[in-house]
Every structure is written in structure tokens, then in C-alpha cells.
């Protein structure tokens, strides 16, 4: 058994490094791996009187409600679609604004712009929902009062599902742009000045410098962020959807995601088994997705892959 031997030798030679690694391993064991025992809940009938492993094993009964109303596909597609839009538009806009900000020379303006963009991140979704209602409410909303003052027809935003596909994405980006931008801004700061100087000497203008130096240097950051985001792609932005859409069933076809569906279904029926089954479905889906995308990336360029 040569592999085991080398592993033990490795362990002995690098013992200090392994001891230093230990806290991280323990941390993940406690917080991420031990709780996985709870997956078992997804296959049992919850009972107040006994412990988890004494409960009745019911196979896939708990998953039944997910496809009972026949909307699992639609929910999955909605969740995927919104998250892809969030990732795509969010990252593109974040990169653009990070590049623009990094080129700014006026320091106070740069700081100010950055703070203003970051501010929405701290607004809670509850407040956002109030703001949005006051913008788009039919009778007294800002938009319709504005339209009416010009003698135009009021728009019934809250009963027009397709509009929300856009609005949800817009509000998500408005809220999160400042945060993701900072990550890219940090990455740009990390790019050595020498590249730019060399490019300048070669006669590259500012657009060429951005396109041929900055953007390629951000690629790794982008891919890492992308892979992280893909892992939770089935976990929609619950707060956002729940607060913006709430009880408005008219909009559900366009805006319902797995999280809100599960929340609504189980609000009345609180059943740990069914809730776990939905969580398991989301996690498995995310796991498969990350593995697939990572292996594709590894095939294309091994350096960029996460593992």
C-alpha cells in the first residue's frame, strides 16, 4: 500500500501544517457535515414523542407535495432563470462599475459614488417592498400619479406578471450591485501597475488597457464568484420574492420560486419532513450543477477550476 504510506509520511513531515489546518476542518465538520444527519428527516414522519432515528421511515412520501400540484418544473425553471439573470447581469454591471470607479481620479467623488452604490445593500427587504408599493400602487402610486398628471392612462403594475420578471431583477441588482462591485474593485486594486505601464509604453489607450489587461485579470475572480453563486442557484432570494410579491397570486406564474412555494405550502402544515425534502432537493440540484460546471471549466482550463 504505497499510497497510504506516502499519506502517513506526508502527515508526519507536514504535521505543523496539518495542525494548523485542523481548526478549519473541525469547523466544517461541526457546521456543515454533522448537520447533514438531518437529511434523514426528509425520509421520516416527524413525531414529537420520539427521536429522529426512531421515527417511522416513509421513503419518498415527503417529496410528494413537491410534484403534487404539478408545478415543480415551473418552479425549478423560475428559480434557475432568476438566479442566472442575477448572476449574469449582476456580475456584468459590477465589473463595469468597478472598472469605471477604478479609473476615477477624484478621490472624494470615488468614495462618494462607492458609498451611494453600497447604501441600498443595507435597506431591508421589508422597506424595499413598501418603497415599491408606493412607486407602483394603482390608485396612489408615484408612477400612476405621475402618468395621470400628464393625462396618460394609469398602469396596473401589480396585475401584470411579465413586468415583474424585469422589476425583480432590477431591484435585486439595485440592492446588491455595491456589494459585488467592491469585490471586483479589490481585485482591480490587486493588479500590478507594471502591466498598465507596459501597456502604456506600447501605446495602448484606456479602452485597450481595460479590455486587454483589466478584464482578463478579473477572469479568475469572476469564475470563483460564479461557482460560488451556482452552488446556491436553487436557493432563490427568498426575502426579495416574499416581500415584493407576497400574497399576490396573480403574479405567481412569473415570479414563484421554490423557496416561496415551500414556505407557503408548509406555513400551514409545518412538517419538518416535507421541509427537509424540499431543502434536500435544492441542495442536490445545486451540488450536481456545481460539479458539472466545475468539470467543464477544468476541461477548458484547469487553472480556473475550483477543485
Amino acid at each position: 500500500m504505497p499510497t497510504r504510506k506516502t499519506f502517513i509520511r506526508e502527515l508526519i513531515t507536514n504535521r505543523i501544517l496539518f495542525i494548523m489546518l485542523l481548526p478549519t476542518i473541525v469547523f466544517f465538520l461541526i457546521n456543515s457535515y454533522v448537520p447533514m444527519v438531518g437529511i434523514y428527516y426528509a425520509f421520516t414522519r416527524f413525531d414529537f414523542n420520539t427521536s429522529l432515528f426512531n421515527s417511522q421511515f416513509v421513503w419518498f412520501d415527503n417529496f410528494e407535495f413537491l410534484w403534487k400540484s404539478g408545478i415543480l418544473t415551473k418552479l425549478t425553471l423560475n428559480t434557475l432563470g432568476y438566479n442566472l439573470a442575477f448572476i449574469l447581469f449582476g456580475n456584468i454591471l459590477a465589473i463595469i462599475s468597478a472598472v469605471l470607479l477604478s479609473e476615477l481620479k477624484l478621490k472624494w467623488f470615488k468614495k462618494l459614488a462607492q458609498s451611494i452604490m453600497f447604501l441600498p445593500y443595507f435597506i431591508s427587504f421589508v422597506i424595499l417592498s413598501v418603497i415599491v408599493y408606493n412607486l407602483f400602487g394603482y390608485e396612489n402610486g408615484f408612477l400612476n400619479t405621475f402618468l395621470k398628471s400628464f393625462g396618460l392612462e394609469p398602469v396596473d403594475v401589480y396585475n401584470t406578471p411579465w413586468l415583474w420578471v424585469i422589476l425583480v431583477v432590477v431591484f435585486y441588482i439595485w440592492k446588491n450591485l455595491g456589494y459585488s462591485m467592491i469585490i471586483y474593485l479589490a481585485a482591480i486594486t490587486g493588479i500590478s501597475e507594471e502591466y498598465y505601464e507596459a501597456a502604456k509604453i506600447d501605446g495602448a489607450n484606456i479602452f485597450q488597457r481595460t479590455w486587454y489587461v483589466t478584464i482578463p485579470m478579473l477572469k479568475t475572480t469572476f469564475i470563483v464568484l460564479l461557482l460560488f453563486a451556482l452552488g446556491s442557484i436553487m436557493k432563490g432570494q427568498f426575502d426579495l420574492f416574499y416581500q415584493l410579491i407576497g400574497n399576490n397570486g396573480v403574479l405567481y406564474n412569473a415570479t414563484d420560486i421554490l423557496d416561496t412555494y415551500v414556505y407557503r405550502s408548509l406555513k400551514v402544515t409545518f412538517d419538518i419532513g416535507m421541509a427537509s425534502s424540499a431543502g434536500l432537493y435544492q441542495s442536490l440540484f445545486g451540488f450536481v450543477l456545481v460539479m458539472t460546471v466545475n468539470s467543464i471549466i477544468r476541461k477548458v482550463n484547469e487553472d480556473y477550476a475550483l477543485f
Binding site: D61, N62, E64, F65, K68, S69, I71, N159, N247, N248, G249, V250, Y252, N253, D256, Y261, R264, S265, L266, K267, V268, T269, D271, M274
Partner: peptide, 23 residues
């Protein structure tokens, strides 16, 4: 009828609430 109950909750919100609201 646990699963049916959970599924019905969604149907009521999505299809009956707009009716309840006269929309």
C-alpha cells in the same frame, strides 16, 4: 392527506386569492 394539504395551499393562494380580491 399532508402532501395534498400543502399542495392545495399553493392553489388557493395562486388561483382563489385573485378571485377573493375581485380581480
Amino acid at each position: 392527506y399532508q402532501p395534498e394539504r400543502a399542495a392545495l395551499e399553493q392553489v388557493e393562494k395562486q388561483y382563489f386569492y385573485p378571485l377573493y380580491a375581485g380581480l
